[in-house]
Structures are given as C-alpha cells and as structure tokens.
Amino acid sequence: MSWNDFHQRQQALAEVLDSARRDLTAAFDTVPSPFRDTDELLAALHHKWMQQLTGRVEVALIDTENGPHDDRVKAVTMAWRRTAGANPGLRAALDVHSANPALSAATEREHRLLAIAAGLADEHEPPREVARIGRTFVQLLRATPITKRDDRPSPLRKLIPSL
C-alpha cells in the first residue's frame, strides 16, 4: 500500500465516521472508494478500533503494574471505556454491524485480547473459550455503571467468578 492509498483510506474512514455521527444507517448506504464493499470497510473500521484499544490497554496494564493496586480487570475496563468514549461514532458503527459475519473473526480476536489482558483467561486455553470469556467480559462492562471513585477495585471483580 502506498502513502497515497493509506491517506485515501484514512480520508474515507473519516468521512464514514463523520457521516455516522449524523445518521448511522445512512453512513453505510454507499461504500466510499477505495473500499470494495461494506465488509472491507467494516474490517478497516475494526482495525482502527483495535489500534486505539490495544494502545490504551497496554498503557493501562503498565500503569497497573507500577501502581499500588494490581487490578487488571479494572485497568482493561477503563481502557475499553476510554477508547469507546473517545470514539463514539466508531464504536456505534461497529455495534450496529456486530452481526455482520465480516466482523466475527476480528471481534473474536478482540474478545481474546481483552480476556487475556484482564487476566480472566490464559493464552494457552482454547481460543473459543477465551473469546467466550472476553465476550462475557464486554457484556458485563457495558452493563456495569461507571463509578466516580477510581480508588476502589472494579465492581466487575464481584461478577467474575460467575464466568
């Protein structure tokens, strides 16, 4: 991919996300060039999400290792929420298309990353099981209200044994 191709793709993604902020369903009525179809566009959007999420998760885990409390669940929860908060249009676009088979493999990789990073699963466990744990983790973090106090362990910690 040339720099020109890269910039064209980034510009197209920015236009789709800008359009999605105004009307989420209409943003995907036409697929902008250089993308061939909606599946390719969704894959690029998920890649953009993962770049930002992975960076925030890595920083959160480093901060957790150096902090007084080693709460990986809380660190990953906050990283996911910060990424979603910084990218509401991107997260909404992925959520609306979550049932699209083009996103299934990428979403499974995301769920495995989250489960392992949070310490809920080990990378040597069966991938499907790790993805299931990560999917459950995301469902729980979405359903758990955000608390104002950052000095307490994550409320998700209480729910983890049910995994």
Rank of each mutant, 00 (worst) to 15 (best):
residue 43 A to C: 12
residue 111 H to N: 15
residue 41 L to H: 03
residue 72 R to F: 01
residue 96 V to Q: 15
residue 44 A to V: 06
residue 65 E to L: 06
residue 127 P to K: 10
residue 132 R to G: 13
residue 110 E to M: 14
residue 101 P to G: 09
residue 134 G to E: 04
residue 24 L to D: 06
residue 152 R to S: 10
residue 44 A to N: 06
residue 48 K to T: 13
residue 32 P to M: 09
residue 102 A to Y: 07
residue 37 D to T: 09
residue 147 T to Y: 11
residue 74 K to L: 03
residue 125 E to D: 14
residue 96 V to A: 15
residue 110 E to H: 11
residue 39 D to V: 10
residue 37 D to M: 07
residue 91 R to H: 12
residue 56 R to N: 08
residue 46 H to D: 07
residue 67 G to Q: 06
residue 26 A to P: 04
residue 39 D to E: 15
residue 83 T to Q: 09
residue 117 A to D: 02
residue 121 A to F: 06
residue 151 D to F: 10
residue 115 A to N: 06
residue 150 D to F: 09
residue 99 A to P: 04
residue 40 E to F: 07
residue 153 P to G: 04
residue 37 D to K: 08
residue 122 D to V: 07
residue 58 E to S: 03
residue 62 I to C: 02
residue 151 D to A: 09
residue 95 D to A: 14
residue 27 A to R: 02
residue 127 P to V: 06
residue 39 D to R: 12
residue 136 T to G: 08
residue 50 M to A: 07
residue 50 M to V: 04
residue 77 T to F: 00
residue 137 F to N: 01
residue 130 V to Y: 03
residue 96 V to D: 11
residue 124 H to W: 06
residue 66 N to V: 03
residue 129 E to Y: 12
residue 54 T to M: 02
residue 139 Q to D: 15
residue 113 L to V: 04
residue 141 L to V: 05
residue 58 E to W: 01
residue 69 H to Y: 12
residue 133 I to H: 03
residue 103 L to H: 06
residue 117 A to V: 02
residue 152 R to K: 13
residue 151 D to W: 11
residue 92 A to L: 08
residue 97 H to Q: 15
residue 54 T to Y: 01
residue 70 D to V: 05
residue 24 L to A: 09
residue 31 V to M: 07
residue 79 A to W: 02
